[in-house]
Amino acid sequence: MARYGMALDYKSCINCKACESACKEENGILLGADNHRIWVGVNEIEGLFPDLSIGSSNFQPSQCQQCDNAPCQTVCPTNATYYDDNGVVRVNPDQCILCTYCMQACPYDARYVDDRTVTVDKCNFCSDTRLIHGETTTACQATCPTKVRIFGDLDDPESEISQVLRDREHYSLKAHLGTKPKLFYLT
């Protein structure tokens, strides 16, 4: 079994939103569900022309952080949210009672109500569509034209993600909450 994670070389992001499109196509996200499951954060350019701060403008792609200590899992009253064998935080729609406590508890706004199943859903690293078939890519990672996303097994020291996390400085979002995210932003 692996322990999957993702590193994001976010400074290479050009906000083409190919990742959003690929994810939504792959996982059947309904039209109009903007910023659900995956999104690209946009820091607008600050300042007034001509004194614009070019450095302030960047794009920050994001999604579920696949926390090792996920608040959404802890608060679930029916254990509908669980860690699978690959360390991916997933939702069993048959057990979800739609109390939305997980949406309340998630520090990353990563959960949403799926109107097809009327349960809460989230990114699961394409576990249902790819990992289950032995593939080791995600839709967002496979489609990214500037190779922002590096997906792989954090427990395998030879994997690309393990190597890049050894070589480059990186940070996690809201790490002070102790959620131990498995999404890493490369600086």
Partner: peptide
């Protein structure tokens, strides 16, 4: 609650004791 009947069932079958 979106699924109150399911809540009664899984409250017993798979209790989330940290919740």
């Amino acid at each position: 609650i979106g699924h109150p009947v399911r809540m009664v069932i899984y409250n017993i079958l798979t209790p989330g004791l940290t919740s």
